[in-house]
Design a protein around this nucleic acid. Structure first.
Lengths: 209, 209
DNA sequence: TGCGCAATACTCGTCTGCGAGTACTCGTAG
DNA sequence: CTACGAGTACTCGCAGACGAGTATTGCGCA
């Protein structure tokens, strides 16, 4: 497989920032923050300059070498090249069109939730549920605030975000219900194991492989 | 904030692999693959030894220095320490109980879907939808195959995965419907901009800030 | 008029992640 | 009985990510 020449997501953000007009790195970061892209790609100062340099090395950006105005320390302004535009488009095409495995950390947590024991597990899941609710509310507030200002298509990723947050909340709530109502099979075996360390014979056999 | 001493997710996997009995690094990787943990945490050989070394440095693992059997090149066997157990538990607690922002790459793609133009966007979204279907089917197959062998609680993360995949598929389908049925506002403005490069006056004003 | 703080615009060095190589060994097909 | 491919068990070194520092300037406020 042909891995992207510049793999860092910040690279994509940089390309998008430079599409309309040439900018110097600090300005790129500024517009990205303004446009709320920080939610997509956390902008780290350390990475920004490395990434810009790499994009230039691979011919996606070129320096317009404008030292311009007095005052400020010297700045290098970059312009996007045709190759850069192509890369940008191709990258977005890939992001939208293909699903690659990016396991969320919560998934890992779930797969090891055993060691917490049922009671602690329930407690933690309740906390998560609450946080998911807050997150959804916050996103919805952003959406409402922006709605009069710009067309829906420009905020579609927020709608996606809300939908996913709510879906997760729904799942967690369902799981929680099964745990608290006792519908989930093996619950007391789990509790026994957590409290005494002994596990039922059939499971003991299972562990052997 | 107190960042984890060993931040790599592989570290968590290593701890989990060493909970029951001491193992040497290669063996850890082996059991992790066997238990299907690769879906949670991709196991990179390069990282494995660094991570194990770091875990040891911070007192979560300790070497049992067993050169043991003939044949194979020398191996170092590691045992988990009490501090290691505590760290493991605490880490899982954090993963389950708190939601931190980890923006999926698709979200970024959506926020930049503009440059593709409506027709290409629709095409790509169709592809994604198809892949999501495949993914859900595959996960479901795994679940069905495992169900007779182990209790549900041991496969809960697969259930979560399926639920999330389906939720995304549902959202994409809805979005796609709005695009193809023409319900989405601003669709022809979008097409015009993509084909000719000119954007309606109200948007032009918007871009100024 | 002078003080300090926020903003501007980076640089530097460390620390981590990981791909690609290495070297040895066992089973087995010819 | 031997050659080879698959498994075993790592090592090495580079490239990338990032935190923390630095130096300058403009502006508000007293």
């Amino acid at each position: 497989m042909k891995r992207r020449k510049v793999g860092n997501m910040l690279g994509l953000a940089v390309l998008s920032a430079v599409m309309d007009r040439p900018r110097h790195p600090y300005e790129m970061a500024a517009v990205l923050k303004e446009r709320g892209k920080e939610a997509d790609v956390p902008i780290k100062w350390g990475s920004l300059y490395t990434v810009v340099a790499n994009l230039e090395k691979h011919g996606f950006l070129e320096a317009v070498e404008s030292v311009k105005d007095g005052g400020r320390p010297e700045r290098t302004v970059y312009r996007i090249t045709p190759a850069g535009r192509a890369e940008y488009e191709d990258w977005v095409r890939e992001l939208v069109g293909t699903v690659e495995p990016e396991p969320p950390r919560f998934r890992s947590g779930l797969s090891m939730i055993g060691i917490l024991g049922p009671d602690q597990a329930i407690g933690r899941l309740r906390e998560r549920l609450e946080q998911l609710g807050e997150r959804a509310a916050k996103q919805r507030a952003v959406l409402d605030q922006l709605r009069p200002l710009m067309p829906r298509m420009f905020m579609i990723e927020i709608e996606y975000d809300i939908a996913m947050t709510e879906a997760e909340a729904r799942w967690v709530r369902g799981f929680l219900d099964e745990l608290t109502s006792g519908t989930m099979p093996g619950l007391d075996a789990w509790r026994r194991w957590y409290e005494t360390g002994e596990l039922p014979d059939d499971l003991g056999a299972l562990v052997e492989e």
